[in-house]
Structure formats: C-alpha cells, structure tokens
Write a protein that binds this DNA or RNA. Structure first.
Length: 576
DNA sequence: GCCGTTTTCGGCCCGACTGTTTTCAGTCG
C-alpha cells in the first residue's frame, strides 16, 4: 500500500514550500499538509481507488484538487513525482525525520543545513555533540540541549499508541489530577476522546483557580518522563509510555468552548468556526463572542453549537465526514452507547487460545451486566491457537451446556470462530455447525492470496449459509499487518445478499472493521453489525468499549448492532 | 493548492509557549 509513502512525499513538499523566501506560500503549504493527512489516514489503498474511479475518485477526496491529484497519479503510474524530485534536488535533506524533532520546523532545519550541513538525524546529532549549534544566530545553548533531548525522544520514539493503551493511561492521569484536590473538574479531549484507533498525544482540560499548582502537580506525576513545555495555563509532558500529554487549565465559563475546541479534529473545528464567522461571531477556545466582543456562550458545548444553529453530536463523530452539514439540518443520528450492549458474541476460552475457563468467562460477563455471551473458540486450522476439530467441539459443546445449566442470570450461546479455508470451504462439518446457535467465519490462513481469489473465497463461504457473522473482516493488525487484499465492495454486497453481519472486532490492535469502513458498510450497503470483544481473558471482555467507540465513529445507531438486541430478538435473527 | 448557502476569485483559525530577540519569529496544536 503506497498511501503512507505518498503522504510522506506530500508532507515533505509542504516543508520545502515553506522555505520560499520570495513569497509567503503558507496556504499552499497547508493545502499539501491537508492532502497528506487525507491520504495518510485513508483506509482504502489509494491505488485501488484510482483503478476503480480514476482521477475523479481522487478529486472526491477532501483537500485533493487537480494539482495534487496530478502528482499522485504521476506517482501511481510511473513511481515518481516530478514536483517532489525537483524540490529534493534543491533541498537534499531528510525533512521527514528531522521535522519529527520537537521544535524543528522547515526554516530551522534549512538554516542548520546551510550553515552546518545538517542533512539527517545522524549529521544533526554530530553537530549537537560538537556544540556547533549554540554558535548559530537564533540558536543558543538551550536550543542545543533541547535538540539533543528531541533526538533521543525520536530515537526511542514509539509514535502513535493504540487507543487500548492510550485511553487507560489517560484515565489514570485524570483520576490522579482529580484526587490532587487542586481542581474542580477534569475532562479528556483530543483524539482519545474521539476514540480514534491510534492516539498521538493526550489532551486534558482542567478547571481550576490554582493553575500554577496544577502545572507543578502534572510535571511531577510518576507517569511523566520529562517536561517539554511549561507555562501558566498549559504544560506539555512526555509520558513514559512514549507519547506527550498536554494539560490546560481553563476557567469555568470557558470549559464548553475549550472542549469544543480541543475535542473536534482540525477540519471539524475549521468548519464550525467558519459558521461562527458567517453569523458575525468569533469562536475560540475561550468562548463564542459577538461583534462587540461580548461572550455569548462558552460554559457548555451544547450552548455553543445551539447558538450556531447546530445540533451537538458525540465526540466520535467530529471528524468532518459530513456531520457538520447534518448538524446544521438537525439530523444527527442518535448513536449507540456502551450501555446499549446486551451481549458479547466473540469470546475465547482456554479450550482454544483463551486463558480463562468457560465458567470464569461466563461469570465475568454476567458480573459486568451482559444478558448473554457467545463462546466462540477456534476451529482446527488454527492449530497454533489450540483450534478444535469436530470431535473436540462435540465435547466442548456438551461442557458448555453443562456449565450453563448451573449458572443463572445469563444465557450462554454455543458458537465458534470457524476458519474460512483457502477454497472458501468451512473448517468444520455440517453437524458441528448445525449444533451452534450462530457462527463466526474468519480468514486466518493463506492471507497473502490475490485479491480476486480472496474475494471469491469469502463470498463462497457466505453462500454456504453457515456464516452468520464475518469476524475481523479485513484481518488488519494496526501498525503491524496490512489488511488482506480483498475487494471490500464485492464482499459487502455479498454480505447484503446473504444476510451476513459484519463484525467490529474490539481488540485494540484490530478494531476491524475500522471506522471508515463501518460508515461505508452502513451507508452504501445498509448492513448490520456485531461488536465482539474477541476477549481471550476475563479482563478483555471490557474491550467492547473500543468497539463501541469505532461503531460511533462509523455513525451506528443501536438498532444497527445486533448484540444490542435482547436475547429473544437476537435468536429470531439467527434462526430466521 | 483547494474550495464554493457571501465565491470560479479571494479567502484560507489563531492563541500559547520558547528562546533569543530588545519587540518577535518559529513552532505547535
């Protein structure tokens, strides 16, 4: 997949454009940055999009116009981008790595290049170590130290964290700040609040009149490895887990405005602020202000959106995917909430690769309020994961029946995560499949096969009539493994024809389907979904909240997710 | 370079923090 490569090239072009001394090209710079962001965060391979829809497909992407589309097409067709190559001849520098260093932008990078010949991380490091940098005009001993810290940070840098790591860390920090006694309220903002699958930094907002004490407290928390910036109302610290955390202190009358400002992604915010300007207002993180600078709103987000003639929406929607327009029409859907989840249909036990017993998993599910749980261990092709054959499944199901007879207050369903074999067949015999309450199908093996073959393989499995839910449909592992090469549109179409439910696997490194594809499957194919925890231990049953976050990011209502149904309705669906 | 319920031209968010500056440029989000 070339998305990342193309995004990096566009990002570097933006850096190099910043160096133009003859005229201010900063809007052009922003255009390239936006295009880079769009392409870098796409879930579909841009090459596929281009094959399918040609230039028109690229032009439909936000922030891509004729100019940038031309460069992208040139790269897709010929493997090179002349605009990039031309710039690179003038500036033979590794902007990509260097600009990762905190405090280094295009201009300072170029200055270091011209005066000291710094081209990449290693030459920068050498210059720092020889104390050459402190001699430069505009730099000093402190900048040199800062750069050294920046280099170390990048070298040990882990980049973005999975939501499943970042969110619990944020919750720990928030509860510590709350318990400090220095604050009236603490709120999470940023991409973690939007439940984005990966998080680059944490944004925390605090209401307090002891600003300085709060800043000191944050700096000295156990989770912190170093202070990056510290001012009277804002402190940035590097956390030991490898991402930074911004803590801002705001006044009570501004908290709504601050939340509005720091929760939405950039594009969402720009649009909302443009609406404010059209109405003759000004919106910033301190409030919504009228023409004479009078504060009109700011205490709550709802108040701000309402004064703008908009309907407030959950944080997960604020990605500028059409929600601003919908909000102006007061047509924001009522999204699914965690409390709507009545059951879990994807759970493993120690009969395959889980670590807890059937009984423990059932009891834990009951204790967190589930009305039903589906036990879905692996089938035999997954031998590394302790997958079972038909004989073992017969015994396994007997045991589930026996245990569930003993336990009240929760309905236990028999299922399996059945391998969809290379030829599209299923990994278990019909009589085993018939004994299940419902069936998950999944691709685990031969994941590198060609697109057409893979697509046919999955569709054939659907047509057997024994796949109720397609588990982790694309098989991706975030930051680790690309999705399988499959024609998702054909798969979704076939799912619609065969009544197959798409899973949102809640495991933090899967979140599969991802948010964009959830939205696509809902909008274009009207499919139903199941949010499964894919828990391999008791504690992991709680992962379902990440799946719910992804569902909300895909704009799902509770009636579109089958495990919000009560058991009778669900069983009718599976029998039907 | 992108974009269109003020538009095919003329806008495009703006405040906080830092270091080295003696009044602000660069960077960040």
């Amino acid at each position: 997949m070339d998305n990342k490569k193309i995004a990096e090239m566009l990002e570097e072009i933006a850096e190099m454009l910043e160096l133009d001394e003859e005229k201010d090209r900063h809007f052009e710079v922003r255009a390239y940055r936006k295009a880079a962001l769009t392409i870098g965060s796409m879930q579909e391979d841009i090459r596929d999009l281009y094959k399918r829809k040609g230039e028109r497909g690229l032009l439909e992407l936000p922030g891509i116009g004729k100019g940038i589309a031309g460069s992208v097409i040139e790269f897709l067709e010929n493997g090179r981008m002349s605009k990039y190559d031309d710039f690179k001849k003038r500036y033979p520098l590794d902007f990509k790595d260097l600009s990762n260093i905190q405090g280094l932008g295009a201009k300072r990078i170029y200055k270091l290049y011209r005066s000291l010949g710094v081209k990449d991380l290693s030459t920068l490091k050498a210059a720092v170590e020889k104390h050459e940098i402190r001699e430069l005009e505009g730099f000093g001993a402190r900048s040199e130290e800062e750069l050294l810290r920046g280099i170390k940070r990048v070298e040990s840098g882990k980049g973005r964290l999975l939501l499943g790591s970042a969110l619990p860390e944020a919750e720990t920090i928030i509860s510590k700040i709350k318990r400090s006694g220095l604050v009236d309220a603490v709120e999470l903002a940023g991409s973690a609040r939007r439940m984005k699958e990966t998080v680059g930094d944490l944004d925390i907002l605090v209401i307090s009149n002891k600003s300085k004490e709060v800043m000191d407290f944050v700096e000295n928390m156990d989770e912190v490895s170093e202070t990056v910036v510290k001012g009277p109302t804002k402190t940035t610290v590097m956390l030991k887990i490898g991402i930074t955390c911004d803590v801002r202190v705001v006044k009570k009358e501004s908290i709504g405005a601050a939340l509005q400002y720091f929760i939405g992604n950039k594009d969402h915010n720009v649009k909302v602020r443009q609406i404010a300007i059209r109405k003759g207002y000004k919106l910033n993180e301190y409030g919504l202000f009228g023409s004479r600078g009078k504060r009109i709103a700011g205490r709550s987000e709802k108040e701000i959106y309402e004064k703008l003639g908009m309907q407030i929406m959950d944080p997960e929607m604020r990605e500028d995917r059409g929600e601003v327009e919908l909000s102006l029409e007061h047509k924001i859907p009522k999204l699914i909430q965690l409390e709507d989840m009545h059951g879990d249909l994807h759970v493993h036990t120690n009969h395959s690769d889980g670590s807890d017993t059937i009984e423990d998993m059932i009891l834990e599910a009951r204790s967190i309020g589930r009305e039903y749980i589906g036990i879905s261990d692996h089938s035999k092709s997954e031998y590394v994961a302790g997958g079972m054959d038909d004989k073992k499944f017969a015994k396994h199901f007997d045991e589930i029946d026996k245990i569930s007879d003993k336990i009240d207050g929760i309905k236990v369903l028999k299922s399996a995560e059945i391998d969809i074999l290379k030829d599209g067949g299923l990994d278990l015999q019909r009589k085993t499949l018939e004994r299940m309450d419902y069936r998950l199908g999944a691709v685990h093996t031969n994941t590198k096969m060609g697109k057409d073959e893979m697509t046919k393989r999955i569709i054939k499995a659907f047509e057997s009539g024994y796949v109720d839910i397609l588990a982790h449909p694309t098989g991706r592992l975030i930051q680790k493994r690309d999705p399988i090469d499959v024609d998702l549109d054909r798969v979704l179409e076939a799912a619609k024809d065969n009544g197959v439910i798409m899973e949102i696997d809640s495991f933090p490194e899967r979140l599969d389907l991802g948010d964009e594809n959830v939205l696509k499957a809902k909008r274009e194919y009207g499919l139903k979904f199941s949010i499964g925890s894919d828990a391999h231990s008791k504690a992991q049953l709680g992962f379902i909240r990440y799946g719910v976050g992804t569902a909300k990011r895909g704009w799902l209502r509770s009636d579109e997710v089958v495990n919000t149904y009560h058991i009778a309705k669900l069983m009718k669906l599976f029998k039907g």
